[in-house]
Design a protein around this nucleic acid. Structure first.
Lengths: 245, 245
DNA sequence: AATACATTATGTATAGTTTACGCGATAAAG
DNA sequence: CTTTATCGCGTAAACTATACATAATGTATT
């Protein structure tokens, strides 16, 4: 990897010129904020923490951190996720930048919102410092900074994304019933779907593996359990031409 | 609008704390880069300019500029567009942030890519300084910085977007034939479509206004000319629930 | 053990959409 | 006056989505 420190006196003059130029630019602090969605009790939830800024005392905020010098943006988001939840290698995607000049009371701070989905039961939140916990997306009314905006944008982004790609499986246990899957979709999309057509849809996509197990300890007739066929999905991602507005 | 200068001694202590905190953060320069697509000679084109950095001498780059202190990100993108093309009030949307630590030889510069579509014939490029001009998207092989990446990402974004929203009309003259419209879609999507089904599709959407005029000076049977019904589109945007992967 | 109840699992009929392609009409060019 | 290219309309078949029906299977209750 090339190094562009600007302090190296032996760099060619073109690079020194570029360094001088960049140093003359106004600059801003860069943060990443992770909107980490989970699913529990048939509700879409998001991981929040009480703001540690005095100005926003008592208000909730997203999990975020400063992007370090020489740190890639995606890497910073993965770092935050790892630090706060202990999880790595999960779904994580850049959604949008928020850079209103007044969005942070301490000065110009531009934040990049990342969206992530994870299974609430796959990891215990060991430390609940600053009320770190899962909160129902529908219940949140106000947040610190512009974080309410960010959550709204990410929620809409997720609603759209989950209809084009089967992201939902990241939110469910490894084995799940069709009802659980449908509940998830209904919670994210905020609609109710026809049970029979929903099942048929997924059956026809052939992305579910019937593992010949049944639900346990449900107060009604148990349903079959399935696993998601990640391989099959990876192979035939939809090729997609169709005008549709 | 609130002011958070940090130089005001009469601000409450919580704000002063926040200012101190933000000042301790590493910072980066922020730019916007506009990927401005146009359509001409049945080709998708993009507006480029020769880089003015010595390091990238002879290579093409996107139209971009520094985000000023206290300038909103969207505003900066609109400013660039206006300065370079004289156009305002056109389609412009944030696509993605590019923040690789080594993407700029002069130091850490994070750029926000914006996508815009405009009608090449609606404005003459008066000044061709630094070879400012339209270049065929398919013909570009290398660019300064990571701009080739940015163009690729924006092109894919456009391909997807144009199938969900009728953006294409921003690229065409006010009056256009169905063939022109189809050529545009084919150029953007890189596929060929059935003429008759394409016509039917648009006819059924009822978004085209037949203005009872015919093409002039075409070397074959002239087709009807249409206008796009922006109002109708604005009213019934697709409500959209359907799982589809 | 019989019954009520909730939920799973599968099916079917119908309407709507997409796709592939046929064909006559019309303008331009030789 | 024929050839050629494109326009504009049309239709049949395949596929997809939607609404609704009913039997099977488990738990809970009498």
């Amino acid at each position: 990897m090339k190094k562009h420190s600007g302090k190296n006196a032996h760099e060619p003059h073109e690079v020194k010129d570029a360094v001088k130029l960049v140093q003359s630019y106004p600059s801003a602090a860069i943060t990443v904020d992770c909107v980490i969605f989970g699913f529990e009790e048939n509700k879409l939830k998001v991981l929040l923490i009480k703001s540690d800024l005095e100005v926003y005392k008592g208000q909730y905020s997203l999990l975020g951190d400063i992007v370090q010098e020489n740190e890639d943006l995606d890497a910073a988001a993965y770092r935050v996720l790892k630090q706060r939840t202990g999880m790595n290698d999960v779904f994580l995607e850049q959604v949008k930048v928020f850079g209103n000049p007044d969005r942070h009371p301490g000065g110009r701070v531009i934040t990049i919102a990342y969206c992530s989905l994870l299974n609430i039961n796959h990891h215990e939140l060991k430390i609940h410092d600053n009320d770190l916990d899962w909160y129902s997306v529908n219940g949140i009314k106000t947040m610190a900074f512009d974080h309410m905006d960010i959550v709204d944008v990410c929620h809409k982004w997720l609603q759209k994304r989950i209809q084009e790609h089967p992201l939902g499986f990241n939110l469910l246990p490894e084995k799940f019933s069709l009802r659980e899957l449908q509940n998830l979709y209904e919670a994210i999309l905020g609609v109710s779907l026809d049970r029979r057509n929903f099942r048929k849809k997924f059956a026809s996509m052939d992305l579910l593996i019937d593992i010949n197990e049944m639900e346990q300890d449900v107060p009604h007739r148990p349903g079959k359990l399935y696993k998601f066929n990640f391989e099959k999905y990876a192979k035939n991602k939809r090729k997609w031409v169709g005008i549709d507005f």
